[in-house]
Design a protein around this nucleic acid. Structure first.
Length: 880
RNA sequence: GCCCAGGUGGUGAAAUGGCAAACACGCUAGAUUCAGGUUCUAGUGCUCGCAAGGGCUUGGAGGUUCAACUCCUCUCCUGGGCACCA
């Protein structure tokens, strides 16, 4: 059956790859089942949402390497869970559906089918029996169940603080979904809107989300990003009595030790106390300022180089440590969302307060002084560190963390405040005013308030609608469907209304990794025994852009599940690796000045760039000498996508897999080039030719044959076993590029051996060696080029699939070097190389080194000062 | 401004204290071929030299060391993240 492919010296990859993909599918080769007697390995890709463009060769930079690791682990005897499913709910899918004018349900099904087809083309070893789709009721029923679990545990609540609102997607966004003041999906400038919304109390897990990072093997950069995003800071809350009101203004400060220098206070414009304490003569100015602050975007408000602005409320508070009356201002540099939304201002020791005090001529009092001549008047900027306390009961104490601790203890004793920990992390806004998501399982009853939908009434089905476009009114399209909205209260039976917001897509992806352990369970989200066996995920692979979104949310849900006794672990992903980006060389053009100033051409929502990708019609009209080429991320919107389909058709899936690994280190950003992949193609063909030329000499019972004794043969077999040692090790450590290089090196040596052999009939010893090589090389390549390897395996007359074979292990004796080269240096400069047996004594090596001609030449004018010998490596002779 | 990751031949890169440039692309020459492509062989960091051979070289400047791409200090550049968080 394979006669054709053998007879030509060119590898017929199209036939061979299609053949094996079909056979794997028929044999259900990648199906995996629970087996408590086997060690498990769970390798998981980030949950993809299937986009219309399908996968590009860029996506192969994460899917291929994990596939290689999983296939290797399988050959090493692990029970390998390698599932795939679709993150089908949420903004990315819905925006695409709206753009295409398609029903999202049908569209996602089509797109997923295309992804599945592409994954099969590149030989992915997914267990498709576990495929899940987060937009199916079978799945989102359990997403809703988890919502109720969080609700039951007091971790889901409704609040009407102003939210981040994307005017283009017409929905609220979580803090993590606002990237530099813009929507993560459409890049529009985010606004603030007052809307009652559901939140998950992720801040309650702030400490554990930080400490858990120490227990997992993730890239340090991602851990740092999470730590900084969570932003834990220790300090104190202190109450300032507002003069003339029965109210206290509570502030959070990390520097309670500077209380004696607090000369005014600042509230966020949105602070609830503002209306109450503002005096009539200041009311107009305060209201104007508040309105202006609300109109301004996050970007404007957070620009750090802006001069500080604010207005006086007319009210005063008493500084609790000295009773001094100090004025209360409002200013937009104080944020309602952090701490208590109000601060005590210590201009002497905080730069922001300093700038504000200078602008509004407010008094500056120094708490810490470095020298007697240093005065508040002489300050040109705030002094956050250094000096000793110059006033108050702690006079003389140094400016240190220890002093801060002492002061916190003291104010607790005085009853004016208490030590607290604050997080920069905000609670997770989960409501979306959108159609395409899991409905929030809550019923609003006029008598009972927000009542959870009883578990036995789940799922709350997402109804089919004709118009699924977001309304922009602050309500989801579901609000316009009376049959959905109107229901009865589960508690009192009176008429009630369903919550019409849906959950953001990150809810679905916060537990999908558990569903893969037990994907078809209709009784519960997952069986604990199955989850305990498969989880946590051993190796998780995906892009670094999810550092503070999915990766933080999933950790939070897992900790909640752990606390609820559902799972024994509280970190879902043991080992994480982020692949590098893939860039494509893309034709664009300069954005002209006219254009930039012209609101019609440039969307004001887009960040101002001086380069734009050429649209297809512009490529025809714009002369080529005006094209400006740039390396940009391969993506559909840039029109620069190379698909695995076209590469597989032209050069083969095995070539694509090999090149994806070889092109650069795994984490590195790569510039896609068609030239480079030709080299991978040549290598695969070279292996094919070499292997098929040697195959006639194959003897299946080579293991009982004579081991090669000739120099050439011993050397080749040594290289083979050194290659076995290196390749498996490199794959497990994500050094795929050097692993492939090792296989290339071996192939080069094998090629030289073949040339030497020429047309002679090989000796019995050579037959044994050739046979060992034919088998071993096939299995070493199997995780990387599985189609080629299975074809080889069949050509050797073997049954079955390489995926089920044991991965080769190396023989240390065969891999050991027979002689080693010792480098001889004089004053650190290379002068000579000497070859010795590996067990040569140090003294003997030194003697040989000193006897070298070049060393002797140096010694005619100089003396030996020192000799350093590193066994097995070098001798460095220091002369002078 | 702060944090993280980088900077090595014409190009992608390798080497994590011990021979800088493995492997591959590209290029040069030769063989095969009517020719092109393929394949095979040899060469290919820079530089001086007819040669033998020598010198130089990992963004830059210092330092530690017998020895530094690798460790330390400062600095420049590129990419990514965060950015008035009290």
């Amino acid at each position: 059956m394979s006669d054709e492919s053998v007879s030509g010296n060119r590898y017929d990859f199209r036939t061979i790859e299609a053949k094996w993909q079909q056979r794997w599918e028929e044999a259900d080769l990648f199906r995996v089942d629970y087996d408590p007697n086997k060690p498990k390995f769970y390798g998981l890709d980030f949950f993809p949402y299937p986009s219309g463009a399908g996968i590009s060769v860029g996506h192969c930079r994460n899917y291929v390497p994990l596939d290689v690791v999983c296939r290797l682990k399988g050959m090493q005897g692990y029970n390998v869970l390698r599932p795939m499913g679709w993150d089908a709910f949420g903004q990315p899918a819905e925006n695409e559906a709206i753009k295409r004018g398609r029903n999202p349900r049908e569209m996602v099904t089509d797109y997923a089918a295309n992804y599945r087809r592409q994954f099969k083309i590149v030989g992915m070893s997914y267990d498709w029996s576990r495929e899940i789709n987060s937009s199916h009721p079978d799945y989102y029923r359990w997403t809703q169940w988890f919502f109720l679990l969080l609700h039951k545990r007091g971790l889901a609540y409704r609040s009407d603080t102003p939210i981040n609102w994307c005017p283009s997607c017409k929905t609220g966004l979580a803090n993590e979904e606002v990237v530099a003041g813009r929507c993560w999906r459409c890049n529009s400038v985010v606004e603030k809107r007052p809307l009652p919304q559901w939140y998950f109390r992720i801040t309650a897990y702030g400490d554990r989300l930080i400490s858990g990072l120490d227990t997992i093997q993730w890239p340090e950069g991602i851990k740092t990003q999470q730590r900084e995003w969570i932003g834990r800071s220790e300090g104190a809350e202190v109450d300032f009595a507002v003069i003339g009101h029965d109210a206290a203004l509570r502030v959070f400060t990390t520097r309670p030790d500077t209380l004696w220098g607090a000369t005014f206070m600042v509230m966020a414009p949105e602070h609830p106390l503002v209306a109450q304490i503002t005096t009539p003569e200041n009311a107009v100015a305060v209201q104007e300022y508040t309105e202006r602050a609300q109109r301004s975007t996050e970007i404007e408000r957070q620009a750090t180089d802006r001069t500080k602005t604010g207005v006086f409320t007319g009210a005063y508070a008493n500084n609790p440590v000295n009773g001094e009356p100090i004025p209360i201002y409002i200013a937009d540099y104080v944020l309602m969302g952090y701490g208590t939304g109000a601060i005590m201002a210590v201009p002497a020791h905080d730069q922001r307060d300093f700038e504000f005090a200078k602008k509004y001529s407010l008094p500056i009092v120094m708490v810490y002084q470095s020298a007697p001549e240093q005065t508040a008047e002489s300050l040109e900027e705030a002094l956050p560190a250094g000096g000793a306390m110059a006033l108050g009961p702690f006079a003389g104490e140094p400016n240190s963390k220890e002093t801060v601790r002492k002061v916190i203890k003291w104010i607790e004793e005085q009853g004016t405040g208490k030590g607290v920990v604050n997080f920069r992390l905000r609670d997770w806004l989960i409501s979306r005013q959108r159609y395409w998501g899991a409905p929030i399982p809550i019923i609003h009853c006029p008598n009972c308030g927000a009542v959870p939908v009883p578990e036995d009434q789940l799922p709350v089905l997402l109804p089919d609608v004709e118009k699924y476009q977001p309304t922009g009114t602050g309500e989801s399209p579901l609000a316009g469907i009376p049959e959905f909205v109107n229901t009865t209260c589960p508690e009192c039976g009176s008429p009630a209304k369903r919550e019409t917001d849906t959950m953001g897509g990150f809810a679905c992806s916060s537990w999908y990794f558990l569903r893969f352990a037990d994907p078809h369970n209709s009784e519960r989200a997952f069986d604990p025994e199955l989850a305990n066996y498969w989880l946590p995920v051993d190796l998780y692979v995906g892009g670094a852009e999810h550092a503070v979104m999915h990766l933080l949310y999933a950790r939070f849900w897992t900790k909640v599940m752990h606390d609820a006794g559902l799972v024994p672990f509280d970190e879902p992903f043991q080992r994480l690796r982020n692949q590098g980006m893939l860039l494509a060389y893309t034709a664009g053009r300069r954005v002209t000045k006219d254009e930039a100033g012209d609101g019609e051409e440039v969307d004001t929502n887009e960040p101002l760039e001086d380069w734009k990708v050429l649209k297809p019609e512009e490529k025809a009209s714009l002369p080529e000498d005006q094209w400006v080429w740039k390396w940009v991320k391969m993506s559909k919107s840039m029109g620069n996508v190379v698909t695995p389909d076209e590469i597989s058709e032209r050069l083969g899936a095995d070539t694509l897999r090999l090149y994806s690994l070889f092109v650069a280190p795994f984490e590195e950003t790569v510039q896609w080039s068609d030239k480079g992949i030709e080299g991978a193609y040549r290598f695969v063909n070279r292996v094919w030719r070499l292997w098929t030329e040697l195959r006639p000499h194959y003897s299946a019972d080579w293991r009982s044959g004579t081991v090669a004794t000739g120099d050439t043969e011993r050397k080749l077999r040594r290289k083979l076993h050194q290659t076995i040692r290196k390749v498996g090790d490199d794959i497990e450590n994500f050094r795929f590029n050097t692993g492939v290089a090792a296989l290339m090196e071996f192939t080069n040596e094998l090629s030289a051996f073949r040339n030497e052999l020429s047309h002679q009939t090989p000796t019995a010893e050579q037959v044994t060696l050739i046979s060992e090589i034919l088998e071993t090389l096939t299995l070493l390549l199997a995780p990387i080029t599985p189609h080629l390897s299975d074809e080889f395996w069949e050509l050797l007359g073997k049954e079955g699939y390489t995926r089920n074979c044991a991965y080769p292990t190396f023989d240390p004796a065969a891999a050991a070097e027979e002689s080693i080269v010792i480098v001889v240096q004089v004053n650190g400069k290379l002068r000579e190389r000497i070859e010795v047996a590996p067990d040569t004594a140090t003294a003997e090596i030194e003697r040989l080194a000193l006897a070298c001609e070049k060393v002797q030449a140096e010694l005619t004018t100089k003396q030996v000062r020192k000799v350093i010998t590193v066994p097995g490596k070098l001798v460095n002779i220091v002369v002078g």
